[in-house]
Structures are given as structure tokens and as C-alpha cells.
Amino acid sequence: MTAVRLPAGPRRRHENTPDTAALFARLSGLPAGPRREALVDELVRAWLPLAHRLARRFRDRGETLEDLRQVAALGLVRAVERFDPARGSTFEQYAVPTIVGEIKRHFRDHTWDVHVPRRVQELRRRVRTALGELAVSVDDRVPDVARIARQAGISEDEVVTGLGAMGSFRVLSLEAAVGSPGQDEHYTLADTLGEPEHRYDVVLARVAVQPHLAGLPERERRVLAMRFFHGMTQARIGAELGLSQMQVSRLLSRSCARIRAAVESPAADVPAAA
């Protein structure tokens, strides 16, 4: 069956979409001044439900809805001031991407670099608000934890958590300089981090193998030591011990198999040599 594309219908309008074409026509002809500012305020109030509706789309991403509404309102103000009705598009078509872009920019520039529980984010917000309120008081003293707790209406432990979150809003770059500015030697945070030590695996392997080596016959221990600790070839080992290269190869295979079995099954005893 051949699909048939129906012609696009008219764009659906929300019930609270205002008709402000006449107001924007007036705004485009007004110079800067009180009359223009008053008209901008009227248009922002008319379109504020749209901004709030767009803000709700992002409410489950770690920011409070009130903060998102403020960011969306800022985007709405910019859309009102920049909209040019002469270009032919409606204000809603222009405002939606402008407001959404402002919200996304807010998430990119002003939100957490790492995931933080919502409860901690809320404590940070309440502590920050309390600090702002205390900063405008006549008392010039730096507020202590108890005073912040009373102002924010939370416990002192919660204040400590909120203060810690305020200092953890941004991650520190590994390229950040470490040390006092007066020091002659400068290094970065990355220079203070440890690196994986691959020789640890060798140490662990030797510790695991050591007790099982003692259970091998003397000749097999010598063959293993000459091969793996002194780097001797099988032919040279055979010449030293009066064995053929084939015998040396069989001794090595049998000894390694016994030790491997013992290491992988610690409860098993090393079989006694014949």
C-alpha cells in the first residue's frame, strides 16, 4: 500500500496563547524609554504561562521548578525584546526555541558537574538563601553554623552538608595548579595522583606460588629456578643436569601443572613426587 502524506493542518494553539500581534506591532515602533519598558512588561506577563509550561518539561533534571521558571522567564524577556514581527513568523514560533535554549544553557553553565542527590541540592539552596539573608543584616559577623541553621530552619548537620555541597558544585580540573603561588616548583593536581603498579601482579603471583614450590622434588625446583629465575634454555639445563631437552621439557610442564592446580585449588595438596 502506498503511503499518502496528508497536507499539514494549522498549528495547534494552546488555550492560554494570547493574541498579542497588535502589541508587538506597537513595540517595534517604540524607542527605548518608559513606554517601551511598560509594553515589554505587558507582553511578558501575557506570555509567562508559555514560559512556565516549557520550564516544567525540565523539572526532573535536578533543578527546582522555581529556578527553572526564573530561567524561562529570562528567556521570555529576551524573546520579547528581540522579536521582529516583520519577519513573518509568530511570536510563539520564535519564543519557544529561545526559551528552551536559555534553559539548556542554564543546565550547561550553572548546574552540577556530577550527580548530586536532590536532598543535598535542596540543602545547598536553603543554606545559600540563608547566607544571602544574613548578609544583609546589620551584624557584620560571619554567621556560624548554628545561626545559619536557625535562619534556614534546618539542623546544624544539614547546614554542614549544604555548605559542603556549595564547595562541590564544580569539579576541579586535573590541570589545576597545586601549591602556593610563591613556591618555585609548580605542579598540577594530576601530578599528585598515583598510577597503577603492574608489578603488584607479579608480587601476588610469587606469593601465591612460593609455598607450593617447596612441595616439589629437589630436581624439579632446580629446573624451575634455572629456567624462570636464571633464564637458561632447556638445552643448557639438560647439559647441566645430565638430562635430555625432552626430559627437561616434561619436568617443566609437570611442575607448572602441579603448581597451577595447587594455586587454583588452595585446599588441594601438592601431590608427592614419585
Results as ranks from 00 to 15, higher is better:
1 M>K: 12
4 V>F: 05
5 R>M: 14
6 L>Q: 14
6 L>P: 05
7 P>T: 11
8 A>S: 11
10 P>I: 02
12 R>E: 15
14 H>K: 07
14 H>S: 11
16 N>E: 10
17 T>A: 13
18 P>Y: 00
20 T>Q: 06
21 A>N: 14
23 L>Y: 11
25 A>N: 12
26 R>E: 11
26 R>T: 13
32 A>E: 09
36 R>E: 04
37 E>N: 15
37 E>T: 15
40 V>W: 10
41 D>K: 12
41 D>G: 13
42 E>Y: 08
46 A>Y: 05
46 A>M: 07
48 L>W: 09
52 H>R: 14
54 L>A: 06
59 R>V: 08
59 R>E: 07
60 D>V: 12
61 R>M: 07
63 E>F: 05
64 T>K: 02
64 T>R: 07
66 E>S: 07
68 L>R: 00
73 A>E: 10
74 L>M: 06
76 L>P: 03
78 R>P: 04
79 A>C: 04
82 R>S: 04
104 K>R: 15
104 K>N: 12
105 R>P: 07
106 H>N: 08
106 H>S: 09
109 D>G: 08
110 H>V: 00
119 R>W: 03
122 E>Q: 14
122 E>L: 15
123 L>T: 12
125 R>C: 04
128 R>G: 00
128 R>Q: 04
128 R>C: 01
133 E>F: 07
133 E>P: 04
137 S>C: 09
147 R>L: 03
147 R>E: 07
152 A>S: 08
157 D>R: 15
160 V>I: 07
166 M>F: 08
166 M>T: 11
167 G>Y: 14
171 V>S: 14
173 S>D: 13
176 A>P: 02
178 V>W: 12
180 S>N: 13
180 S>T: 15
180 S>V: 11
180 S>C: 13
183 Q>W: 15
186 H>F: 06
191 D>I: 08
195 E>C: 07
195 E>N: 05
195 E>W: 10
198 H>T: 14
201 D>Y: 02
202 V>S: 07
202 V>N: 01
203 V>K: 03
203 V>P: 08
204 L>F: 05
213 L>E: 06
214 A>G: 08
220 E>S: 14
223 V>H: 13
226 M>N: 09
228 F>N: 04
229 F>V: 05
234 Q>F: 00
234 Q>W: 01
235 A>K: 13
237 I>P: 01
237 I>S: 01
238 G>Y: 02
240 E>P: 00
240 E>N: 04
242 G>S: 01
244 S>L: 11
244 S>Q: 11
248 V>Y: 00
256 C>Q: 14
258 R>H: 09
258 R>L: 13
258 R>N: 10
259 I>Y: 01
260 R>E: 13
263 V>C: 08
263 V>G: 04
265 S>V: 00
271 P>Y: 03
273 A>F: 13
